[in-house]
Amino acid sequence: MHIPDGYLGPKTYITMYAIFTAFIFVAIKKLKKKLSLKLIPFLGFASAFSFLIMMFNIPIPGGTTGHAVGAALAGLVIGPWAAMIAVSVALIIQALVFGDGGITAIGANCFTMAIVMPFIAVWTYKLIAGNTDNKRRTGVAAFFAGYVSLNVAALITAVLFGLQPIISTDAAGNPLYSPYPLKIAVPAMTLEHLLLFGIVEGIVTMVFFQYLKKANPELVSNK
């Protein structure tokens, strides 16, 4: 789901940078109130943790393996505002070390994966689990937190792609950036996430969340 350079036009990526920057400022302000000087090491470790989640490959039925974005899990474990910064930093390091995701698309990638995903995950979890501590219900809630959040992020990414042929064309009306219109980008992107990647994200979120809940109950009990 990492958008590379060349697919988004300047109108889109500048807007996404502005939105991302605004959210980051709000997140830092909110966390500073809670954590003061502990903020920096806390977020440094949260980012490292978020990056490491993406390294874990888990077996998927059918003999293959997959890895998750981990933003939903980060949101459930450290809260959505901290996860926003942690996942953003992990994505920026990925772009700067691996070239994974474009430099111009950092704002858009961070918006979908670091801002949208943790919030949707936490809201979905709260909606399903409520105040219960029942293992099965929290497990189901964690699965859907990962599944729903990734699919919403994929939908937003598809809309960003699909908007390009409408807002950025040459004089003859040909698209200058991503050429797929909304009617192609949205179903193509969402279907693969609904049927495959969303399930992987859901399983990873559920398995690891249950593990953390079992081993460090005080850490995740209030999320």
Partner: peptide, 27 residues
Amino acid sequence: SRQIVGNRFLLVFNKTWHRYDQTYKAM
């Protein structure tokens, strides 16, 4: 395999969490 991955994940998580507090004190 899920048990194995889960255990490794927990190991890394606990190490990062433990080190965070140590780093803060060192700073």
